[in-house]
Amino acid sequence: MSAAITTPPAAPTVSRLERLRQQLLSRADSLPTAAALVIFVLMLAYGEIAYGRIFQLSTVSNLFINNAHLIILAVGLTFVIISGGIDLSVGAIIALSSVCGVILANAGWNAGLVILVMILIGSTIGLVSGVLIQYFDVQPFIATLAMMFLGRGLASMLSTVPVRLDEASGILLLGTKIKLIDGPKVNDLVITPGVLIALLVVAAAFIILHRTRTGRTVYAIGGSEHSASLMGLAVVRTKLFIYVASGTLAGIAAVVYTARLGSAQNITGIGWELDAIAAAVIGGTLLTGGFGYVLGAVVGALVLGLMNVLITRDGSIPPEATTIITGGILLIFVLLQRAVISRQRE
């Protein structure tokens, strides 16, 4: 009798394994994001063991403070990439917007007004990209490339030397450090309004992308734009929204960055569009579109930031090899995505 009872569960064990496999496969989409999270934790652990002082409030605070702008950019890029497009203009938007902002602030403009102008510069450039892409069938790559050139060129016309913000400017308030937990020595949990803005942006983007109709449409466009428009989704409006949002977020990132640094230059933000794309991709957003997470982009940005911290701490890695490492990490994640996709096709 006991044998009769013990034998039947043997079959369910197999099927349970099978079910687990099925579940894993159906969840394979989120594998890259999970991998990014695992790598982030591994990097933290490695840093703690090899160099020490990583699991510290001050290190974590600095990680967020120094990468707030990258998080904001990566969130914007996530929207664009999920829809199957690309935005190369964000780095140049930061240059134009921050140089403009500093010059206006130093000319005596009200800080709030300056911030509004800085953000609107981003929105305007995003809108132009969106119109070129949507109404004139220009490829996203080339339209945002044009905007990148335009932003960089205009910023260079305004100034080719670093411009410093007046000490008294209200914009700097956004970069002030607020102590939340007063730890021993310098080990404090510090936060800046800039970080809060970044977190707000993440929360808002999360709600829009994962909880609203607009968000679903973004995914649908990335899956197949043609099908999305046949289904009667608001493709035109959503695509414009995506590029305007990306530009606006770049404007916000410019505000946060300028507030932290207190100065701006025409060469600020060179290559940041690539960092932001890398962050989104590391976070599990598929470059072909149709798949991705907002929170993944945050993890991706933090992985890149932590990598810089570790390289600085290590000291033996030549700084010129940094870009090789970034490229390598990017390649690993893209290969991972590729493997997951081909797995699903089977």
Binding site: D137, I142, A146, L150, G153, S156, T160, N266
Partner: peptide, 25 residues
């Protein structure tokens, strides 16, 4: 003009060409 401003002129060329090539125009 400062050579670092060249990109702006390139941008104008790109946009003009893209508009000329686009179906709508």
């Amino acid at each position: 003009i400062s050579s670092s401003a060249t990109p702006a002129f390139k941008a104008i060329v790109i946009i003009a060409l893209c508009l000329l090539q686009s179906q709508r125009v």
